[in-house]
């Protein structure tokens, strides 16, 4: 039951954020082109509070520059805007919106600034468990969003009123 809630909350937050902030057209049933798109970038936002964990986004296809143009509102990106910054902000907003839905609304979480996610990071995370993931078609590419929490946080989550 709790896992279903996490899955639904993550999907809702991801759809709303990519549509409203990223201004991208979404589809949940991936096309063949979207499935075959090459990995472009991965970012993560870590959080701590009543439980700790991490939200990861990996995008496939040419997504990051388009996101940066859409969010900043400029066709030409200025030198101070890194395309990965836009993907990081998307991760930040999804994370900030999903946590209160799966925890208590009065709980306070501290989020770190978004950072690139590398394979060394994921290899070190034996104690992290994935509690929800979403796959969204984004125009010519796709995004995979994962929510992972510290394994010891399971009991905290189970105690949250449904």
């Amino acid at each position: 039951m709790m896992m279903e809630k996490c899955q639904k909350s993550l999907m809702e937050a991801a759809v709303q954020t990519f549509e409203d902030l990223g201004m991208m057209l979404l589809n949940e049933e991936l096309t063949d082109d979207q499935k075959e798109a090459k990995k472009e970038a991965s970012v993560m936002v870590t959080f701590s509070g009543p439980f700790s964990g991490r939200l990861e986004i990996t995008v496939f296809g040419e997504i990051t520059e388009k996101l940066a143009r859409n969010i900043s509102g400029s066709e030409e990106l200025s030198s101070d805007i890194l395309p990965l910054d836009a993907l990081g902000e998307i991760a930040n907003v999804i994370c900030g919106n999903v946590l209160p839905k799966i925890a208590n609304v009065r709980d306070i979480f501290h989020l770190t600034s978004p950072a690139p996610l590398n394979s060394e990071q994921t290899d070190q995370d034996a104690e992290m468990v994935m509690i929800a993931d979403s796959h969204l078609g984004l125009e010519d590419g796709r995004a995979e969003i994962k929510l992972l929490i510290d394994e010891t946080a399971g009991k905290t989550l189970e105690s949250v009123p449904q």
């Binding site: 954020t17 907003v93 900030g96 946590l99 609304v105 009065r106 979480f109």
Partner: peptide, 24 residues
């Protein structure tokens, strides 16, 4: 202007006289 959604944290900020706009 933040993704913050914790009711208690928003109340603390409002006590400081700050307005609040939620992202997105």
């Amino acid at each position: 202007v933040s993704t913050e959604s914790s009711e208690s944290r928003i109340e603390m900020l409002q006590k400081q006289g700050a307005g609040f706009v939620h992202k997105p």
